[in-house]
Amino acid sequence: MSDHDREPVDHPLAGAAQASGTRVAIHPHDHQSCRHLLKSLSDYVDGTLDESLCVEIEKHMGECERCQIVIDTLRKTVELYRDMAPAPPVPEDVRARLFVRLDLDDFLVGK
């Protein structure tokens, strides 16, 4: 019997699957890796993770599509927020009251 024929098991990165009783098949592998990986994800998507851990994560992603999806969507999440258009500046009336409060009203004209 090859590795491919083993019984599918629940994946630790799919808590809801267990909660709802929907079993999601996944090939057995070292689930400790998934958990271990979870705490390194921010550093990984920021590119600040130690190289040895990156290698470990990339190897794991090749074997675990769930983790691959979590990482891809996490990276996309961060990208979307980073690309978000900058919020509008302070409203003019708020700025005016701030300048008055700071005794800077003579500098109010022209931003």
């Binding site: 799919a14 808590g15 809801a16 958990r35 891809d72 996309k76 927020y81």
Partner: peptide
């Protein structure tokens, strides 16, 4: 971090066309 909530939503939505991320609704949701 060991107490981290495990990811529940496992859907790869990165493949959505770029315009989907640029809608006003999408931005408001973010």
């Amino acid at each position: 971090p060991d107490g981290e909530q495990e990811p529940l939503q496992i859907v790869d939505w990165c493949c959505l066309p770029e315009e989907e991320f640029l809608t006003a609704e999408s931005r408001a949701y973010l």
